[in-house]
């Protein structure tokens, strides 16, 4: 299953008093590690989700019917199914499909999927569906004339996208994007169900092995809160930057 080896502190098992001696200090390291892992997965999934979302939005708004239908199906289905279920389906089905594929290609045995990679892939896939809708709406909100001016001056499709569409839609997209980031940070907790050690999983382990449920779950909660508060600060800065051209109302 590609789980990492347990992050539980080894020190606790070696002492005469066993688990009784385990406390906050012993779990500080693993919890910090879990927090970092949570951030790593979230950042990577977010970046890939943005790419998927841009592709999805362009496909949905574009003239190629096949791509529009695929993008529509993607965003509709992924947004309709509970994320927890999707994560479980994609993780196990993904592992099975990959094993089957590798076997077909002549490799024996089970293919191990790295939990880290799987977590990122699954969360990015879910994010991409929501991003598709955020970007689609943001692009539709650009006054048509601004895009037409890009055409009228002979921009290629790619240059128009890069120089005009993306910067012009960003102010419209940022509030939706920041929502998705906050949801994503919390969704990382869902990948603990497939045994992946991020912040929530580590807190669970800590709580179970020390019996200090309240302490460790509270620590996890406060850590999520701090992450989201820091994110809010970053996003409000980004929004200010993206809106530099807009008159203050």
């Amino acid at each position: 299953m590609g789980q990492r080896t347990s992050a539980a502190p080894k020190k606790g098992k070696k002492t005469l008093h066993g688990y009784q001696s385990e406390g906050l200090a012993d779990w500080a390291g693993p919890l910090l590690q879990g927090t970092l892992t949570t951030l790593e997965i979230a950042l990577a999934a977010y970046a890939i989700g943005i790419l998927l979302g841009l592709m999805g939005a362009l496909a949905k708004l574009g003239k190629v019917r096949v791509l529009a239908v695929i993008a529509s199906a993607y965003s509709t289905i992924v947004r309709a199914v509970p994320e927890l279920l999707l994560i479980i389906i994609l993780f196990y089905a993904g592992t099975q499909a990959l094993t089957a594929l590798m076997n077909a290609l002549g490799t024996d045995g089970r293919t191990e999927v790295s939990g880290f990679v799987a977590a990122i892939a699954v969360l990015a896939f879910v994010q991409g569906a929501y991003m598709t809708e955020v970007f689609r709406g943001a692009i539709l909100a650009i006054p048509k004339g601004q895009l037409e001016a890009a055409d009228a001056y002979g921009m290629t499709a790619f240059m128009k996208f890069r120089r005009i569409t993306v910067p012009a839609m960003l102010p419209n997209a940022l509030s939706g994007m920041s929502n998705l980031w906050l949801i994503l940070i919390k969704d990382t907790a869902l990948v603990s169900v497939v045994g992946f050690e991020e912040l929530f999983f580590t807190a669970q382990q800590a709580a179970a092995s020390t019996n200090k449920y309240f302490t460790f779950y509270a620590i996890a909660g406060v850590t999520y809160l701090m992450l989201t508060m820091a994110s809010n600060a970053v996003f409000s800065k980004a929004e200010k930057l993206a809106r530099h051209g807009q008159a203050r109302s």
Binding site: G145, Q146, E148, A149, L170, H244, G245
Partner: peptide
């Protein structure tokens, strides 16, 4: 253009 259509981010 009638509506100017300047690019707002520049």
């Amino acid at each position: 253009f009638q509506q100017f259509n300047l690019w707002p981010h520049f």
